[in-house]
Design a protein around this nucleic acid. Structure first.
Lengths: 195, 195
DNA sequence: TTGACAGACTAATGGTTATTAGCTATAATA
DNA sequence: TATTATAGCTAATAACCATTAGTCTGTCAA
């Protein structure tokens, strides 16, 4: 890992934990193992690091949701749908990198329009779009009852988003959140899936 | 309005817009129309203002959700339920004071456990608890199909919360968000209400 | 009238912070 | 081998910021 990457990594960690304004250049440098001025060999300034991170967030979004690859093959039964959904959610909730990025965006979403947009993409458009396509596909196969797939996607993902957010700020509730999520997903399937 | 109240008001506005760390004592004082040191006649320090605001948030929560008064009388038909729900949501979304408080909490939710807890109360427990009771009551009257009322409460409120959050960071989407919300609430009623 | 207190002000202080200048050593390149 | 770029360092600076000390003024109670 290059120094530049290490800086970005530590900066993201600190920004997620203490916010941009709550983090000093010196802190970042210390975590990286260099002195603050050395940091300016890699970035023009503190704000430049912030911009590089938001570029990363945008790239990550494109990489993940840009193509349809992430959808994979459609689940072929109710149990399969529940299983893959829970697994994906659990991963999203616990993966340290994704969690950092999420907290970072939540904290800085009001900084400017670009941050606002990317936050919306990450926590709304991306995941909802993905589930819209999955549900649509499964509707065509007769696994879901005919309905507005976009609306259904919102209805599965929104409660999940809220519980993940809760787990982010109160990690002691992680397990409780996962249980609520599983209960919710099962209920959702009972209501909207055929058999 | 006393100077103390004016300080709290302006501080909340600035904290909501630029965050606690992004706001200087001088800025607050200037908005109030006094000099920074005069502020120390009313508060022990910057953090004291923050604590007073979180006390306010807690008091507001208790006042609003502490008793069952806020539930009012139960809607007696599907249309009535939709109408009062939309009206309450629209108010919550647009009221400047509530909006400021919401942005403030979202920004500072990771500051410490107390902030985390109160944020969860405001954006989860409170509203969901309220809808749990309303739906429960309406179930007893046969207006909702028999189901897990807590789960249903989550399912109405969660998408609303996400769209409000989106409108908070992208005010140009306010109307679009309200339309999505209305569509969602209607769909919810179609699925879970009797006739 | 007096005195005390509330609440404003100016001036000053000490700490933090982002950033720059300038030096040095190492490693790649010509 | 000579040179150049990279990437670290120390020292310094200028701005900002929270907070304190000390002063002044007006209001109200004794």
């Amino acid at each position: 890992m290059t120094t530049r990457d290490k800086i970005l990594d530590e900066a993201l960690t600190l920004f997620a934990e203490n916010g941009y304004d709550g983090t000093s250049v010196e802190e970042i440098a210390e975590k990286v193992g260099i002195k603050a001025p050395s940091l300016y060999n890699h970035f023009k300034g503190k704000e430049d690091i912030l911009n590089a991170l938001i570029d990363m967030a945008e790239a990550r979004y494109e990489e993940f949701f840009g193509s349809d690859k992430h959808i994979g093959k459609l689940p072929e039964s109710k149990e399969k749908f529940i299983q893959t959904a829970i697994q994906k959610i659990s991963f999203t909730m616990h993966d340290p990198m994704i969690r950092k990025m999420r907290k970072f965006l939540v904290r800085e979403q009001f900084r400017n329009e670009r941050f606002a947009e990317i936050t919306t993409k990450h926590q709304l458009s991306g995941i909802q779009g993905m589930y819209t396509k999955i549900i649509e596909g499964m509707m065509r196969k007769g696994l879901f009852k005919k309905d507005d797939s976009e609306l259904l996607a919102t209805e599965v993902t929104a409660p999940v988003a809220l519980w993940i957010a809760k787990a982010d700020r109160q990690p002691e509730c992680e397990q409780e959140s996962m249980e609520s999520i599983e209960k919710h997903v099962r209920h959702f399937c009972d209501v909207y899936m055929t058999e």
